[in-house]
Nucleic acid binder design. Sequence first.
DNA 1: CTGAAAGCGCTAACAG
DNA 2: CTGTTAGCGCTTTCAG
Lengths: 333, 333
Amino acid sequence: MRTGITIKDIAREAGVDVSTVSRSLSGAYGINADTRSRVLAVAERLNYRANRVARGLVTGRSHTLGLIISDIRNAFFAEVARGAEDAARAAGCDLVLCNSDQDAHRQMEYVSSLAGKRVDGILMNSVAVLDKDQKERLEAIGIPIVLLNRTPGPFSTVCADNKAGGRLAAEYLLKLGHRHVTHLTGPAHHGNLTDREKAFVKAMPPNSVTVLHGENTFAGGREMAQKVLAEHPRKITAIFAGNDTIAFGVLRAILDAGLKVPDDISLIGFDNVELGSIVQPPLTTIHQPSYELGHRAVETLLRIGRKEATPEHHVLPVHLIERHSCGPTKASS
Amino acid sequence: MRTGITIKDIAREAGVDVSTVSRSLSGAYGINADTRSRVLAVAERLNYRANRVARGLVTGRSHTLGLIISDIRNAFFAEVARGAEDAARAAGCDLVLCNSDQDAHRQMEYVSSLAGKRVDGILMNSVAVLDKDQKERLEAIGIPIVLLNRTPGPFSTVCADNKAGGRLAAEYLLKLGHRHVTHLTGPAHHGNLTDREKAFVKAMPPNSVTVLHGENTFAGGREMAQKVLAEHPRKITAIFAGNDTIAFGVLRAILDAGLKVPDDISLIGFDNVELGSIVQPPLTTIHQPSYELGHRAVETLLRIGRKEATPEHHVLPVHLIERHSCGPTKASS
DNA sequence: CTGAAAGCGCTAACAG
DNA sequence: CTGTTAGCGCTTTCAG
């Protein structure tokens, strides 16, 4: 009912066998040019549209990829998704969008569901560093996977150089004289954020930084900032946010508290989301190539999918974007 | 190779027929509780995962929906997409993401591709108001469609009350004394934006507003604003942007020109994107329920999909969010 | 070069 | 309650 016109109809109409139709359509070898164009004409006339589901059933390839991310509303992920979709489209694949909200259970449900649909590959920024059980289940699924965050293990990964980014942020703040800083970030054991945190803390002098974990969202950033602001009204001179979205929330809280950035407190983010340039003050941040990340990730997904082969690990460079949310400490040294 | 374990394997293993397995799995009627649990146990043990593609082939339902939007990087669409995905998931459907970049050709390719995949429905913010030919082609496809912008015709629509929004913006600006305003918006004949434009112009005094069409993106907003600023340095006292993303671009250009908002020029947007509250100055805008839009759209999509039935038209309310990007004119009255 | 036949993995009557 | 029989729409040997 739904479809109507199939390969069979056009076979009958063109007076040939279905296999001939199939071959003509797929532009295959060994087919008379005349028959072929006749078949094509009929297909055209009947407004035929091949059923990709049926084709997928026999070929075993669905030409569909799954993308599991925390939340598409985070501008960083939107950018990643766009890069991924462009690359997928270039390869003739569809991209199904899944928002995990950082929920491990939900993430697994998506994987399961995608597996049931026999997607050709899954791209995901895993909720947290995967435990042994999860890794095994993922491997058992037998679908190519590319992780958007560095996790030791059998899976390919594509991610930014988070450690270098954390270090960059530390060095910059240090150069400006900050010695009492706090790092506001997402849940602990989140691959990328954790790398940033570790590298940041390591690059700062001992005991100069306190870190607070929360939701890595606008709301989360605001809440964490409200907390620190309430507890340490004077002491801290700078905040390093785990990502720009958190930074925006932090900025919001600082503004609400009647304080000024960077006069009262410096703020540096991570991601370099487009809107960072128009908030007030424009946000100093660490740039990571979000679009590229998504693009590269599906490229490697497609590559490893083909040859049942060795995992690849790509790490993309980051750099500092100096705008106006950071300034020198007055109280320091 | 890809899959391995099928219904057949578990039939053999459990010593029953495949149809029995199928029935057990789908929790169907008329099946011995014992056999059923035995089958389930085997399935569990073998880590069986039903092939939804095969199932779709026979049932005719793919449990997949398509979402075609301009660009997921636009925060408004990200919000819509999230609402759509949540609703789709609640209904057991996957959502495939398509970015049309406002390109009519690309939009049609996506529709075609989705149709080939026999999606259960398509959700799209059509590039422009559809012409007769396009409408016919869409109808011929025979897949339920819900449009995210109001287009007269046979398709269901879910959208915000754009006209009311345009009027609201005009009334507000008028109240503040503005009599020389410009409206910076996207391409002409874009359903939603056009409605806003028309209502806005109509609610303003004759000849008080000039409108400029461009790209409805951050870059587009910046470019249009640069143009206006260069040509009418003094005259205009307020700008109404077709959406917040454009407004952000406009803001950027105004700031770059060394002017102040709202002192030198007032700015009002449309959408009420989250980040509007932290730009400087916080953006006054028209709120539309983006998440709801996406959510409602898939709900109606699913509904009209079931009964081959009458199109539905939903229009969701908007309201003014008064922040600090608009002020009274000094030069006026 | 083209037709016949088998089958991808699953569901859906129809008997028994 | 369960097995048998047909397919869904397409690709793919295998003959001819």
